[in-house]
Amino acid sequence: MSNYYAVFLPMLDQEKSMHYRPDHLSFLQKQTEAGRIFAKGRFTDGAGGLVIYIGETKNEIEQIVKQDPYISQGARGYEIHEWEMVK
């Protein structure tokens, strides 16, 4: 059974975020095509963004998140929380 994980990507460096945005978006597109993303978007106040990943474990999601150029290049931090969706 798959779980949902909300990943908050708080802004660390706005200049780096702008520079690595195309790489970040490409990374997210690949994850979406692989069926690993439920939803994604930026916060309109500039605080960062949120990606809701689909996976088996928090560790699995963390390994994916660490590959995001925003994370690997120090543009954003990350917090991962398992998310129980209520419909």
Rank of each mutant, 00 (worst) to 15 (best):
M1S: 12
Y4T: 04
Y5R: 04
Y5C: 04
F8V: 13
P10Y: 05
M11L: 14
M11K: 09
M11W: 01
L12V: 13
L12S: 11
Q14P: 09
E15C: 04
K16H: 06
S17D: 00
R21I: 01
D23V: 00
D23Q: 03
H24W: 00
H24K: 01
L25D: 12
S26N: 10
S26T: 08
L28E: 12
L28N: 14
Q29R: 14
Q29H: 10
Q29A: 09
Q29F: 02
K30I: 00
K30P: 00
K30L: 02
T32P: 10
E33R: 12
E33N: 14
G35C: 14
I37K: 13
A39T: 15
G41T: 01
R42G: 15
F43S: 04
T44R: 07
G49P: 05
L50P: 01
L50K: 00
I54L: 15
I54A: 12
E56K: 12
E56R: 08
T57K: 02
T57V: 11
K58H: 01
N59V: 09
E60M: 02
E60F: 01
E62G: 07
I64V: 15
V65H: 01
V65P: 01
V65F: 02
K66P: 03
D68F: 03
D68H: 06
P69H: 02
Y70V: 00
Y70A: 00
I71T: 05
S72M: 07
Q73L: 05
Q73G: 07
G74Y: 06
A75N: 04
A75V: 04
A75M: 01
R76Q: 08
R76I: 00
Y78T: 13
Y78M: 01
E79V: 13
H81A: 07
W83S: 08
W83G: 07
W83K: 04
W83H: 07
E84D: 07
M85E: 10
M85H: 10
V86I: 13
K87N: 15
